[in-house]
């Protein structure tokens, strides 16, 4: 009696094992015969349709309008907020043509992309919303020095009315 029970158990085990294996094969088999469910995106080919989300943090850019004016007053709040020293602001003295007073203005807004951790702290620190995160993500270059960028366009000026 015990032997029969054991034999039953032996074959029961085998049956259970085969059944469980077949359940697994059902899943993979289903996907094999449903190639529509393939999730691969072919990256360089789909560049035209590939759109990043608005909030995606790719790199810091200084916003310029059509008159080549930006909103950065050179207050260095972003520089202080940055945990890694990614941003360096080099200021210059500028004589205001109207009042004749000398004011502070940015000479170079230096951004080291190679050190940036994309933490967004500089953006929320900026009191004048001069900088934002761009959605670019193809940052690879052959020379490391190219990752150090000057964000203000040559000849760009501070937008009037920002300093107040």
């Amino acid at each position: 009696m015990r032997i029969i029970k054991n034999i039953g158990q032996y074959f029961g085990e085998i049956f259970h094992a085969i059944k469980s294996l077949l359940t697994g094969m059902k899943i993979t088999g289903y996907y094999f015969f449903h190639p529509k469910e393939i999730v691969t995106q072919q990256y360089p080919e789909n560049r035209d349709t590939l759109k990043m989300f608005d909030r995606f943090r790719g790199e810091v850019v200084l916003i310029h309008d059509s008159n080549n004016e930006h909103r950065c007053t050179g207050c260095s709040a972003c520089e202080l907020a940055c945990p890694n020293g990614t941003i360096e602001i080099i200021n210059k003295k500028e004589i205001d043509p109207e009042t004749g007073k000398s004011t502070k203005a940015i000479d170079q807004f230096v951004y080291h992309l190679s050190m940036c951790t994309f933490c967004n702290l500089c953006i929320i620190a900026c009191p004048t919303d001069a900088i934002k995160m761009a959605q670019t993500f193809e940052h690879s270059v052959f020379d490391r020095s190219k990752l150090t960028k000057v964000l203000n366009n040559p000849g760009s000026k501070l937008m009037p009315g920002i300093r107040e």
Binding site: M52, F53, D54, R55, F56, R57, T117, F118, C119, N120, L121, I124, M133
Partner: peptide, 22 residues
């Protein structure tokens, strides 16, 4: 994808700031 849309990054999201959310 959900994270990227809301927090701005897929892995290192840094969505919290002391006091609330970014």
């Amino acid at each position: 994808d959900i994270f990227e849309e809301t927090c701005g990054a897929r892995l290192t999201m840094n969505y919290n700031v002391p006091g609330g959310l970014m």
